[in-house]
């Protein structure tokens, strides 16, 4: 656990071998004299050089190229292009469709992680420490059953989830409107949940949350299981209720996991391509659910403007990085360091 730290941070105490810190060149010289055996070199080559070369070729190289292409007017189907400087970036930010998509992504990135995390934390607490208020600290009766049930949606591929929910939301004969009219709300007889500007995004977020809650619940259950049960017992002896325990004991102790989950969900929210494509391939009413990845896809493969599409990709990457940095910052500001919760 995080409270037990055996190793000092970078630049801290001497390395395990007890050597003092030395300059890189000195280290290199010394090692060349002493340790440059065949076994050592071949080990470096196979376990370091090869993966690193693959990583640079297949991961870093496309990133660099995307930045390069974003500065051109490349059409994608030939080898002719001109460098146009930052014209593509200027065009992105005067493109109404892209700005709408950016706004939708920001809405998603704010709402989706919070809703999903609150729900999955609540469920995880209930099935681990929310059980009977006497005896051993444990979850609700039958909690393993609930765990399987709520994990189930995660097993289904996103595209299938999108198609299923597309039918559930179908205005005529869909489950939602069928249920609403059955309980007497006739106004919903043919209400287009995915086709009304006010409900399209909400309905879409519901689907994504539904598909993700189970996975993060399982993640948090594992994290809570890693906490010493005596802490929960102590809290209960001190008279803390279930809600108080969750907020002041559970969350601070698993904040690393919460932060990781938050970043994952944020990246999902900034992408969201599959769900959007399945539920509202044309972007929804008034582009209510149009996201950046869809605009990027269309710019590249329909409009054949690869330079512009690459610029969108770069912007999307920067927004994602900014989001991750923001989550780290918030975690620090809310006292992660103070409690030694993460390093």
């Amino acid at each position: 656990m995080t409270l037990v730290q055996t190793e000092a941070g970078p630049g801290g105490a001497p390395a395990p071998g007890g050597r003092p810190r030395e300059s890189f060149s000195a280290w290199f010289q010394r090692n060349r004299r002493r340790n440059l055996t065949f076994g050592r070199i071949s080990f470096f080559l196979v376990f370091l050089g090869l993966p690193l070369a693959i990583y640079v070729l297949l991961v870093l190289n496309p990133f660099v190229q995307a930045v390069q292409i974003s500065l051109t007017d490349w059409g994608g189907f030939d080898n002719e292009f001109n460098y146009v400087g930052f014209a593509n970036y200027a065009q992105i930010f005067s493109n109404e469709a892209f700005l709408t998509a950016l706004r939708n992504n920001i809405l998603l990135v704010v709402v989706l992680p919070i809703v999903t995390l609150v729900l999955s934390l609540a469920l995880a607490s209930i099935v681990t420490v929310g059980g009977a208020s006497h005896g051993e600290v444990k979850g609700l009766r039958g909690s393993s059953f609930y765990r399987v049930i709520s994990f189930f949606p995660y097993v289904v591929p996103a595209i299938v989830i999108g198609l299923i929910w597309g039918m559930v939301y179908n205005p005529r004969g869909g489950l939602v409107n069928g249920f609403l009219t059955a309980i007497g709300l006739d106004a919903f007889g043919s209400f287009p949940w995915l086709g009304h500007p006010r409900t399209a995004m909400g309905a879409t977020i519901f689907v994504i949350v539904w598909s993700m809650v189970g996975f993060y619940m399982v993640l948090f259950i594992a994290a809570i299981r890693g906490v010493d049960p005596s802490i929960f017992e102590a809290a209960r002896l001190d008279g803390a209720g279930r809600f108080r325990t969750a907020v002041t004991i559970t969350i601070p102790l698993i904040r690393d996991n919460v932060q990781t989950a938050w970043i994952y969900l944020g990246i999902l929210a900034l992408d969201a391509f599959v769900y959007m494509r399945a539920l509202n391939p044309q972007g929804g009413p008034d582009r209510a659910t149009w996201v950046m990845s869809q605009e990027l896809f269309d710019t590249a493969f329909v409009a054949n403007k690869w330079g512009l599409a690459s610029a969108m990709g770069v912007v999307l990457a920067l927004v994602t990085l900014a989001f991750a940095a923001l989550v780290f910052l918030i975690n620090r500001l809310t006292g992660a360091e103070k409690e030694g919760g993460y390093q």
Binding site: G166, N170, P171, R172, S190, F191, P192, G195
Partner: peptide, 9 residues
Amino acid sequence: FAPGGAGTD
């Protein structure tokens, strides 16, 4: 027009 088309596949 049959209503709800904007939300119908």
